[in-house]
């Protein structure tokens, strides 16, 4: 079996195993897995509204997946996507509310503000990693909590002590009347085009530019890159900043598209953490992220239909997603069995 086929088969088998174990969990807990998965299916593809909302959910997943995947390519594990997303969300909403500008300036400004905020938030762990060799996992996790508290305080300030800010100006909105009419008033917005454009941007940076080559080289082997004259520290920081910018854009999707406001949050959105799953399933490639985001975005939105239609808690889908990551992480053993069974076939 060619290596390429194995590389594609591993995530596919992981997804199937995840769904199977999810079914077993449902059976053991006394639920009907057939009813559960058909409720999930209807929650994704039921009608034009759910399809619109599913694509709406996929949009931030694309960007958070890109964020994690991009950092991974430089050998960095950015668990801070969640925090970078939150600051991006706030920045976009703030620009959307505070300024009065024509749309062709206002909308790009709000989007750029989100990317810059996310990038700056990721700059700190990048700098600490590069200059002091502090492990980025610890710092980004802590930055998540700081982001949560900080954006909550800032949101209250902008909202005059209330829990939710006012709606952003129409000139900064990604809202789409066309999509609304097409999908029975779902919240699907133009952000999906931005997200897909960013998939292309990531591919372009990594595959077609010198910077991308350096970033990947540092990811493969730091010492060799340094010996070849690359500035490893600069590349670590740059990779984190770009990754954070993607995460910030994911926040902009929520601020300018889905919700049109910023609100005080009791906990994390989960989009950033699920970005880890998206990136892993997509093997950290831009195209892979599209598949990962589509699968997890759909699962996540579809699961909302499960408590009503089948009486099953939505967390079953979180269990399935966690299991899929687990199985992808155990790719070695899946690979081992694939190669072994294949060899047996060839021997016959």
């Amino acid at each position: 079996m060619p290596n390429r086929v194995v590389n594609i088969l591993v995530p596919v088998i992981s997804v199937i195993l995840g769904l199977l174990v999810g079914a077993v969990v449902m059976v053991v807990s006394g639920y009907d897995p057939v009813a559960g998965y058909s409720a999930l299916w209807n929650g994704i593809f039921g009608d034009s509204y759910t399809i619109g909302e599913t694509i709406r959910q996929i949009t931030p997943y694309l960007l958070s997946g890109l964020a994690v995947a991009f950092a991974f390519r430089t050998g960095l594990f950015n668990i801070g996507v969640e925090g970078q997303l939150l600051v991006g969300w706030f920045a976009a909403a703030y620009v959307g509310i505070a300024f009065d500008l024509p749309m062709y300036i206002h909308l790009p400004l709000a989007i750029i503000a989100a990317a810059v905020a996310g990038g700056l938030w990721a700059f700190i762990p990048g700098l600490l990693k590069a200059k002091l060799q502090v492990h980025e996992v610890i710092v980004t996790i802590m930055m998540n909590y700081i982001a949560l508290h900080t954006t909550n305080v800032l949101t209250r300030m902008v909202a005059d002590g209330k829990e939710t800010t006012g709606t952003i100006k129409e000139t900064a909105s990604l809202k789409s009347v066309f999509f609304e009419s097409l999908t029975d008033y779902s919240r699907l917005h133009y952000g999906i085009f931005i997200a897909l454009a960013m998939v292309f941007v990531m591919w372009f940076i990594l595959e077609k530019t010198t910077t991308g080559f350096e970033l990947k080289a540092v990811g493969f082997n730091k010492n060799a890159s340094e010996y070849a004259g690359m500035n490893v520290n600069k590349n670590i920081i740059l990779s984190m900043v770009i990754s954070g910018a993607f995460a910030g854009l994911a926040g902009a999707m929520e601020a300018l598209g889905t919700f049109q406001y910023a609100s005080v949050k009791g906990g994390f959105t989960g989009i950033g953490f699920d970005g880890i799953a998206v990136a892993l399933l997509g093997a950290n490639t831009p195209l892979g992220v599209v598949f990962g985001a589509t699968l997890f975005g759909a699962l996540k939105f579809g699961s909302l239909n499960m408590p009503n239609a089948a009486g099953i808690p939505v967390e079953i889908v979180s269990i399935v997603i966690a299991l899929i990551i687990f199985f992808v992480a155990c790719g070695y053993i899946i690979r081992y069995f694939l190669v072994k069974t294949n060899k047996k076939k060839e021997a016959k």
Binding site: V25, S29, F77, I79, V137, F273, I276, A277, L280, P313, E315, I316, S318, I319, I321, A322, L323, I325, F326, V328, A329, C330, G331, Y332, I333
Partner: peptide, 23 residues
């Protein structure tokens, strides 16, 4: 035994722990 990436497996354990408990 399966030589999984330790950080990624840990992340999966975190997600799974929360999901199983809430479920």
């Amino acid at each position: 035994s399966f030589r999984a990436d330790q950080t990624i497996s840990g992340v999966a354990i975190n997600m799974l722990g929360v999901a199983i408990a809430l479920f």
